[in-house]
Design a protein around this nucleic acid. Structure first.
Lengths: 211, 211
DNA sequence: CGCGCTTTTGAACTATGTCAACAGAGGTGG
DNA sequence: CCACCTCTGTTGACATAGTTCAAAAGCGCG
C-alpha cells in the first residue's frame, strides 16, 4: 500500500532543508510548542506521542524514512521523538509546504486513517491488533517476510493500547501457532501471511498521514 | 462549551434549503453514497454510524438541532440516520458551503475531536465514559440538571464501545452512588455534578464537529 | 390481555491488566 | 576476560473490568 500524502510543492532552494540527528528517545519537538517547521525522515524512525495528566502515554504514529511529520499548526499537538538513531530533514519555512488543496487532502486522509485507528482500538482483540501491526510494519518498510521491529514493546503497547505483557504474550502465541517466528525480539519472520491477514481482519488500515 | 464550527457562507437564496423529515431510524444518507448535499438539524437528533463486515456498528457522533453534518466529500464516510423523529434542512449546492479556509479549520477541529475520542476509548473506564457522555449531553442540549437521553442504550453502547448491559449497569451504579437520578430510562437528573465531573476526568472533550 | 420491544439485573466467563519473578543482551569497570 | 549491573523482554499466577448468557421487569400497542 502506497503513501497517500500529496506531493510537496515549493522550491527548497529558497531555504535548503537542514539535516538533524537525534539519538535514542531524543525529542524533536514537544507538545504545545509553536510549530515553525516540519520534518522528513531520512534514516531511522520517529514516533509521535501524547502524554496525559495521569502519566499515561499514547503513541500516535510511527514515521519511517520518506515519511513527513510535524505539519500541524499553529501548535504541536503531540511530542515527536526518535526511536533509536534518527536523521531528519527540517524545513524551516512554511513557503515550502503542501499547498492548500493538498493540505485539505492531507487532513482528510489523516481523519480517515484516525478512524481506522478507532476501529482497531474499539473493535479488535489484542491478537488482531498485533497481527495488523506486524502486517502494516511489513508493508510500510517494504519487507516481505523478514520484518524488522525497531521499536520497543513499550512503544508498541502504547500504540495499540495494550500492555507490554499482552504484546509479548500475543507474539509468543502467534509463534506457537506457527504464524510467525521470532529470530530475536526485534526481528520477526512472517511464516503464514494469509493466516495472519485473516487474523488481522479484512479491513485494511489506510496508510499513516503526516501531521 | 460552544460550537467551534466556522460560520457558513454563501446565500441560501440561490438555493433555498429544503426541509426533510425522517422517522425513527430512517436513513438520511448511506456510507459510500456520492455526497451531493449537507444537512442542518432543525429538530430531533441524527446519528452517523459505520457498519463493519462482522456486523458490528460504530456510532460515530450524534447531531443536535443547529448542528451540521454530511459535509464530507466526495463520498459518504458513514451512514446518517434519524434517532427518533428528525427534521433537517438540506442544502443541495456546494456553493453554499463553508469556504476553503473554514473547511481546513473544520477538518482540524474534527481531527482534534477524534483524538479526544481516541483518548476516551483507549484510556477511560466504562464509568468514566458514561459520566463524560452524560455531561457532554447536558452541555450540548443546554440542560442544567434534567438531561434528556433520547437515544437508546444500544446507540450509547455503540458510541462508547461498550455493551448495553455495561451501560445500564454503570448508570445504575451512578444512581446508587447518588451522582444522578433516573426518572425514566430517557431522563436523567444530575444530582452531584462536581463528582460526575471528577469521575469523567478533567480532560474536557472538544465539541463535536460536523462532517 | 398478551405480544414485542427496551431496559435492567444476575451469574458465569474471559480477555486483558497487575504483580512478581526470571532470562538474556549489552555495557562497564575491575 | 569475567563479574556485575541494568534494561528489556518473557513467562506465570492471580485479579478484575467488561462481556456473554439468561431471565425478569417495565412499557407501549394491537
Amino acid at each position: 500500500m502506497g503513501r497517500s500524502i500529496p506531493p510537496l510543492v515549493g522550491s527548497s532552494a529558497a531555504s535548503p532543508p537542514r539535516l538533524l540527528r537525534f539519538g535514542e528517545s531524543q525529542v524533536v519537538y514537544e507538545q504545545g510548542d509553536v510549530a515553525k517547521s516540519w520534518f522528513e525522515v531520512q534514516t531511522g524512525i520517529a514516533r509521535t506521542c501524547r502524554f496525559f495528566p495521569d502519566g499515561d502515554r499514547h503513541v500516535i504514529e510511527f514515521y519511517f524514512p520518506g515519511d513527513v511529520f510535524g505539519l500541524e499548526r499553529p501548535w504541536r499537538e503531540d511530542t515527536a521523538e526518535a526511536v533509536g538513531a534518527l536523521e531528519v530533514h527540517r524545513r524551516d519555512h512554511w513557503a515550502v509546504r503542501p499547498v492548500a488543496d493538498n493540505e485539505e487532502a492531507r487532513l482528510e486522509a489523516a481523519l480517515r486513517s484516525t478512524r481506522d485507528y478507532i476501529y482497531l482500538l474499539g473493535h479488535r482483540s489484542a491478537e488482531q491488533r498485533v497481527a495488523a501491526f506486524l502486517l502494516r510494519l511489513a508493508e510500510r518498510t517494504g519487507a516481505k517476510r523478514e520484518v524488522a521491529v525497531p521499536m520497543s514493546r513499550a512503544d508498541i503497547a502504547d500504540h495499540l493500547r495494550l500492555t507490554i505483557h499482552t504484546i509479548s504474550r500475543t507474539i509468543s502465541g502467534l509463534c506457537r501457532r506457527g504464524l510467525i517466528r521470532l529470530r530475536n525480539p526485534q526481528a520477526v519472520s512472517i511464516i503464514d501471511e494469509p493466516a495472519l491477514r485473516r487474523l488481522a481482519g479484512e479491513t485494511a488500515l489506510t496508510p499513516p498521514v503526516a501531521e
